[in-house]
Nucleic acid binder design. Structure first.
Length: 470
RNA sequence: CGGGGUGUGGCUCAGCUUGGCAGAGCGCUGCGUUCGGGACGCAGAGGUCGUGGGUUCAAAUCCCGCCACCCCGACCA
C-alpha cells in the first residue's frame, strides 16, 4: 500500500513542506487581505500555550500586563528619529474615518514604544515610581513586502514589554534578565528549541535601540530564525517623550527604557525546528493535547476501556483527548494525529485489550510499545518528560552538527549555505558583515566564546554567528 | 519598485499551441462492505473558466484593457 506521501518531503522542497504542514495540520490559512493570516483552532491552541508559558515567566520577572491603543497619532512616531526611519516604510496609516479625512493621520501600531513612552512620562514622577515594568499582549501591523504565514505576516500577535528604570545599569540588567529567564528559558525548556543568545550588530539593531539582544534558532533547512529580542533603548525614547523623574537628591533625571518582544513567529519556528516528513512534532510541555487515546474499532468494551483510560490520564495531570471517531478509518486518524504532532498516541483495540494491554506510540521516534492497561496512567507522565528531553537533545545535536567554526569570510559564506558559521568578530567586522550581506548572509548575533552575552561588541574573543535567515 | 509567472468546482491542476457539449485527482454527501497505518464499491452534489470589452455562426481557448495573486531581489518580529 505505498501511498504518495502526505506532505512534500522536507528534502524535496522545504518551503513547500512548510506550506503543506500548515494546511494539513490545520494550523493557518491566508487571510483575504494580502499578508494576513487566519489562525485555525489547532494553531491558535499552540499560541495559547505559548502565551500561558511566556506570560507566567514575564510575571515572575515582575512585569504587569496593561493595554494600550491600536491607533497611534502619526506625530508620535516622528519623535524618535531612528525609530521613524526604521518603521515608516512599513506603516499602515488611517487617513479617513467616520466618512471624513482626518486632520492628523493615525498609524496602526507597528510596535508601541511611542504611545507607551507618552504614558510613562505621565505616570513617572519620582524615583519611587521606578522601575516601571509593563507588558502587553496585542496585535501589531507591519506592511512587509514579502510575507509568510507565522514567520512574517502583515498583522501578527505578540507580547511587547516596556520598562523604565532609574539607571542604565538597571535597565541593561532587566533586558538581560528577560532575555535569559523569560525567552531563553521558555524556548529551551518548553519549546525544546536550543537558541544562540547574543548581541545584534549595529546593522541588525532595532530602530531606536542602543543595544539589541536576540535568541536565534536553527531551522531544519539550516536557516536561522530570530525567535525573540530584548532591547536597551538607552535614553532615546525617554528624551523623545520626556520620561523624567525627580531623584533622591531632588534633581530631575532622565529615565532609561527597555523593550522586548516575542510573537506568533515562534509558532513558525516550532514547526520548522521539530517538524519532519510526517508533520509537526509538538514538545509535550507545550502541547495542548499531550496524549490522544484512539479507539481503533468499535468492538465490545473498546470505547469504554478507552474512555476510562482517558479519564485516568486526565486525573494523572495529562492533557488528554479521546478519539472515538470510528466512522473514520484508523489509518486516516493515526495520520492526522501524526500531522498535528501530538506527542503520544495510545491505541486501544480488541486485540491488545484481550491481553489487558494497549499500544503506546511516541511521535518523536515513532517507537511503539505495549503497556498494560493498569500501568498506563502511571507511566505516561514520565514518558512525556522523556520525549521532551529527547526532542531538545535531538534539536541541539542538529544545531551543533550544522554549526561550524571558520577562520575566514569565504569559509563563513560556504558554511552558511547549510547552517551556522562561527567566526571571530575581530576577523569579520563590519566590512565582512557587508560582504556576506551580498549573499543574503547576516550576523545573527555576537557572543562570547562560552556562549554568553558580551557586555560590548568589542570584547576580545567575541564570536559572530552568521547564517542565512528568515 | 525591478525581473519572471499564474488566474478553470473546496484544494492541486489538465484543457489554450490548432476556437466546436467544461475535465481529472484529492476532498465533500448518501448507501453498503470495512476498520491494528491515509480503506473499497456504487450512486451523487458542486464551476457566470479573475474581470471589462472586442473578433467570430461559435471563445476557457484568439486580440486589447484592467485587477488579483505567486516566485526571485531590496525591507523586516
Amino acid at each position: 500500500m505505498a501511498k504518495a506521501p502526505v506532505l512534500t518531503p522536507q528534502g524535496t522542497d522545504f518551503p513547500r513542506w512548510y506550506q503543506d504542514v500548515l494546511a494539513k495540520a490545520e494550523l493557518a490559512d491566508n487571510g483575504p487581505v494580502r499578508g494576513t493570516m487566519v489562525i485555525r483552532p489547532y494553531g491558535y491552541g499552540l499560541w495559547e500555550r505559548m502565551v500561558a508559558e511566556v506570560d507566567a515567566r514575564i510575571k515572575d520577572a515582575g512585569a504587569e500586563n496593561a493595554y494600550f491603543p491600536l491607533f497611534i497619532p502619526e506625530s508620535y512616531l516622528t519623535r524618535e528619529a531612528e525609530h521613524v526611519e526604521g518603521f515608516s516604510p512599513e506603516l499602515a496609516v488611517v487617513t479617513h474615518a467616520g466618512g471624513k479625512e482626518l486632520e492628523e493621520p493615525i498609524v496602526v501600531r507597528p510596535t508601541s514604544e511611542t504611545v507607551i513612552g507618552e504614558f510613562m512620562a505621565k505616570w513617572i514622577q519620582s524615583h519611587r515610581d521606578l522601575p516601571l515594568l509593563l507588558n502587553q499582549w496585542a496585535n501589531v501591523v507591519r506592511w512587509e513586502l514579502r510575507t509568510r504565514l507565522f514567520l512574517r505576516t502583515s498583522e501578527f500577535l505578540w507580547q511587547e514589554g516596556h520598562t523604565a528604570h532609574a539607571t542604565e545599569v538597571d535597565a541593561a540588567a532587566y533586558a538581560r534578565q528577560i532575555h535569559l529567564n523569560v525567552y531563553q528559558d521558555f524556548m529551551e525548556n518548553v519549546l525544546a528549541m536550543p537558541v544562540f543568545i547574543g548581541r545584534k550588530t549595529k546593522q541588525e539593531r532595532f530602530a531606536g535601540a542602543v543595544n539589541t539582544l536576540a535568541c536565534e534558532a536553527i531551522m531544519r533547512d539550516g536557516k536561522a530564525l530570530q525567535m525573540a529580542t530584548s532591547h536597551e533603548l538607552g535614553q532615546n525614547f525617554a528624551k523623545a517623550f520626556d520620561i523624567t523623574y525627580q531623584g533622591v537628591d531632588g534633581t530631575q533625571q532622565m529615565a532609561w527604557t527597555t523593550s522586548w518582544g516575542s510573537s506568533t513567529r515562534m509558532v513558525g519556528g516550532l514547526i520548522m525546528c521539530h517538524g519532519d516528513d510526517n508533520g509537526l512534532r509538538v514538545p509535550p510541555r507545550l502541547a495542548s493535547t499531550q496524549v490522544v487515546v484512539m479507539v481503533i474499532r468499535d468492538d465490545e468494551g473498546v470505547v469504554d476501556a478507552a474512555t476510562a483510560l482517558a479519564a485516568e490520564l486526565k486525573a494523572a495531570g495529562v492533557r488528554v483527548r479521546l478519539d472515538a471517531r470510528t466512522d473514520t478509518s484508523f489509518g486516516r486518524r493515526a495520520t492526522d494525529w501524526e500531522l498535528k504532532g501530538v506527542p503520544v498516541r495510545v491505541e486501544v483495540g480488541p486485540r491488545d485489550l484481550a491481553n489487558g494491554e494497549v499500544t503506546v506510540v511516541r511521535r518523536d521516534t515513532s517507537e511503539k510499545q505495549q503497556t498494560t492497561v493498569a500501568r498506563l496512567a502511571s507511566t505516561v507522565p514520565a514518558l512525556l518528560e522523556d520525549i521532551q528531553a529527547s526532542m531538545l537533545a535531538e534539536a541541539t545535536a542538529f544545531r551543533d552538527a550544522h554549526t561550524v567554526e571558520v577562520a575566514t569570510v569565504d569559509e563563513a559564506r560556504d558554511a552558511a549555505q547549510t547552517g551556522f558559521a562561527k567566526i571571530a568578530w575581530s576577523t569579520l567586522g563590519t566590512d565582512g558583515e557587508a560582504m556576506l550581506a551580498r549573499d543574503a548572509i547576516t550576523v545573527r548575533c555576537i557572543q562570547r566564546p562560552d556562549g554568553t552575552i558580551p557586555e560590548t561588541e568589542d570584547e576580545p574573543g567575541n564570536i559572530a554567528i552568521v547564517a542565512r535567515s528568515y
